[in-house]
């Protein structure tokens, strides 16, 4: 079932600049009167949700399978073969097996989702993804009642992924979500950007997108999905547990040990781009805060 969630702003209903400029001036005026709190924060953020240019999204990537520099994935990911592609779905599911990507896609409705994308390194983009909800895929596999977590695994193919010949991380890259996070309508399996097939450097042919979590949770080039009742290991947590936790929700109030997470640098704004404040749950607080009610987010970073 597609379209459980829709953007507050899409290409089709872009606010005319003059209109939002006027609204902004009103907000600014209210700030002067000490009434700024009346303006809903999420709405203010949505007004400026302009997608980052395609060239920027595809030339500035963290995909250590192809090297640790931002330009490495664009340079070296060309060698990756993504056809044929299948995803092994196993663990606590009724229908385990190797699912051919073409078979999966024939059953899914692809929709566009314009999401904020916030890297743990304190930079950000706005990406118009194309994809389907992870929940639809999980429903296809039939999640058994005891399952509590979903584990993901990236392709391991060092002959095509030069970074995997280096010990940057323990390969293959693995990630995980709690089942309720995986079933959330915001959680996307993305197959494209800007209506084009997913570029190799962005995680072709299919990747996860969890917009309220730091980017490294959104695992790329997925070959395996496992349903389990135990919290699965995650790559960055294994590498530096004191800096990267299982949850990794975007949170401006909980700093990375080595830098502040209170603000972010939008990529693509050039040499003198201004920093912008980071929003709680990357601006998706309304949608996802309920998932973490009663949890100490400082401890569960």
């Amino acid at each position: 079932m597609a379209h459980r969630w829709t953007n507050d702003l899409t290409h089709d209903d872009v606010t005319p600049k003059s209109a939002y400029m006027n609204r902004r001036q009103i907000v600014a005026g209210m700030a002067g009167l000490g009434l700024a709190t009346i303006a809903p924060k999420a709405q203010a953020a949505a007004e400026t949700l302009d997608p980052t240019p395609f060239d920027v999204i595809t030339q500035y990537n963290n995909f250590y399978e192809f090297g640790t520099r931002k330009e490495d994935p664009a340079r070296y990911a060309g060698s990756l073969t993504t056809k044929p592609w299948s995803i092994k779905i196993d663990g606590m599911v009724d229908n385990p097996g190797d699912y051919a990507l073409s078979d999966i896609l024939s059953k899914m409705t692809i929709e566009e989702r314009i999401y904020r994308f916030r890297c743990v390194e304190a930079w950000s983009m706005v990406v118009p993804w194309n994809g389907f909800e992870l929940k639809d895929l999980l429903d296809l596999a039939g999640v058994q009642s005891g399952a509590k977590y979903v584990a993901f695994e990236t392709l391991y193919r060092p002959e095509e992924m030069p970074g995997q010949r280096q010990p940057f991380l323990e390969w293959p890259y693995v990630e995980g979500l709690r089942l309720d996070e995986a079933n959330h309508p915001l959680t996307l399996m993305a197959t494209g950007i800007y209506g084009k097939p997913m570029p190799n450097q962005n995680g072709a042919p299919i990747r996860l997108v969890v917009p309220w979590k730091y980017g490294f949770k959104s695992i790329k080039s997925i070959v395996r999905i496992t349903l389990t009742d135990k919290e699965p290991p995650t790559s960055w947590n294994k590498s530096i547990p004191s800096e990267y936790g299982f949850y990794s929700n975007v949170n401006p109030k909980v700093d990375h040990p080595r830098w502040s997470q209170a603000s972010e640098r939008p990529i693509g704004g050039g040499f003198f781009a201004k920093r912008i404040p980071t929003l709680m749950f990357n601006g998706y607080e309304k949608e996802v805060a309920g998932l973490y009610e009663g949890m100490d987010l400082r401890k569960n970073y």
Partner: peptide, 11 residues
């Protein structure tokens, strides 16, 4: 940096 020769994150 100003003319784009340092990539998309010149800073």
């Amino acid at each position: 940096g100003v003319t784009g020769g340092l990539g998309v994150d010149p800073v």
